[in-house]
Write a protein that binds this DNA or RNA. Sequence first.
DNA 1: CTTTGGATCGTCT
DNA 2: GACGATCCAAAGG
Length: 200
Amino acid sequence: MRRSDLVGDATDVAPRLLNALLSVRDADGVLRVGRIVEVEAYRGSHDPASHAYRGLTRRNATMFGPPGSLYVYRSYGVHWCANVVAGVDGTAEAVLLRAVEPVAGVASMRVARAGIARDVDLANGPGKLCAALSITGEDDGTDLCSRRSRIRLLRDGVDAPIRPTVTTRVGITRAVDRPWRFLVPDHPGVSRGRPSTVAR
DNA sequence: CTTTGGATCGTCT
DNA sequence: GACGATCCAAAGG
């Protein structure tokens, strides 16, 4: 995707990332590809639930950089979670990638997620997604718009849904009522979180 | 099916 | 020193 596609408020960029492809190249050249089916918007200084709400820190620095970067953080000391940085340089708009549908490199994902029976369970959560694609803190700051990067955001002709499903966000304790979770409607590969659906 | 608790550690208070 | 933008297994109905 072009960097210009990611300029804007996270709440506007997030639904536009649905059905885009997240592609990760292994050291051996194998590609693992997932279709993005669930995202959440985090709006920096405008959003008490954002890691960036209280300003720039060592951890969240990538979010304050240019759009198109990958912000990776550790969750609960155990898992990795990944965001696409949006907005413009100096703001901290970000889109948390919460679920992808495995599209290619499924065998590699199965190795990375040993013991998972169904393909749909390989990457239907933010921590699972990073595990399935082997995204770690080492990937923080990756430019997703560069041809040279091992992790990229791509379009394959499948457009974002005209009317995504919209709900409140999962797993947060502040700003819990904001309808900033976006899903491909009726897709089986979304995460377990079940907040209330928001009518539009 | 739902609920509960443990893992585990960097970050910020 | 407390707390997570989570996941999973085990226990309970």
